[in-house]
């Protein structure tokens, strides 16, 4: 197998030019997906038989909650890659990803609380699912704080990579909390082995929101990575040429 792409991926310059044209289309596609999915879900999907219209918050809550977790997984993988192969692009990815993930975890918590009040009767309960997602949010915040607290970039890269890897422990706790433990949060509606506990007219808009959210985040993160690359490599000749050619 040819591993050339993998080694090239580690080069910020290669990454910068390779993905330069991707950010805008991904981001725009994501916005369109989100707008279509949300309007479909909020206005046209049927209401739930028990929860009525308050169930519609699912179209916001589920995409951000799932992505907050998958993005953390990507963060952990990037941390691992950096610790093992010292790839320069990995800490750039972590730095670009962490605030986006933190905001998604926060939206998941807040939308969950807003959903919990009319359905469960409480904003918050210290059950395993809610608490482990709160920990996920704290992990993201810890990564951001650590990155900002360390002036030495070499040290910052390493420290942030370590914490990203360690935080991976939390992901299985989030996922299986509702299956293995008694929680107020209900179990998963969508599983790999069973048919979803929801008719297609309800999950189709959710799927659109989900895909839209993925593209939205991908575009946003590539954008953030590109500006981070320019900052980190500002002494190199290729950045200087790029800036001379296109302006800032």
């Amino acid at each position: 197998m040819n591993w050339m792409w993998f080694h090239k991926l580690g080069s910020p310059k290669w990454f910068f030019f390779r993905t330069k044209a991707w950010a805008l289309p991904l981001f725009s596609l994501g916005c369109v997906g989100l707008i279509v999915g949300l309007i479909w879900g909020l206005a046209f999907a049927p209401a739930d038989y028990q929860q009525g219209n308050s169930f519609r918050i699912i179209y916001m809550h589920v995409p951000v909650a799932i992505l907050a977790q998958s993005c953390y997984f990507a963060l952990g993988v990037a941390g691992f890659v950096f610790l093992v192969w010292q790839m320069k692009i990995a800490p750039i990815f972590i730095k670009a990803m962490a605030p986006v993930g933190a905001i998604m975890a926060l939206i998941a918590l807040v939308s969950g609380a807003i959903w919990g009040k009319p359905t469960w009767g409480t904003w918050w309960v210290w059950d395993a699912r809610l608490t482990s997602v709160l920990v996920l949010f704290f992990l993201y915040m810890g990564i951001i704080a650590l990155q900002k607290a360390l002036d030495d970039p070499v040290l910052a890269n390493k420290a942030v990579a370590v914490i990203s890897v360690v935080g991976l422990i939390n992901l299985p706790i989030i996922k299986y909390s509702v299956v293995l433990l008694e929680t107020l949060h209900q179990g998963p509606t969508f599983t790999l082995t069973k048919k979803p506990e929801m008719p297609p007219e309800m999950w189709l808009p959710l799927l659109v929101c989900m895909i839209g959210m993925c593209f939205f985040v991908a575009g946003l993160v590539i954008w953030r990575m590109q500006s981070e690359i320019l900052q980190r490599e500002h002494r190199t000749s290729w950045v200087r040429e790029e800036v001379m050619k296109n302006g800032l």
Partner: peptide, 15 residues
């Protein structure tokens, strides 16, 4: 305090 627990099933009222 009494909290309602709901399940993972969603469906339209007609269904």
């Amino acid at each position: 305090e009494v909290l309602a627990k709901h399940d993972e099933k969603y469906m339209p009222p007609e269904v």
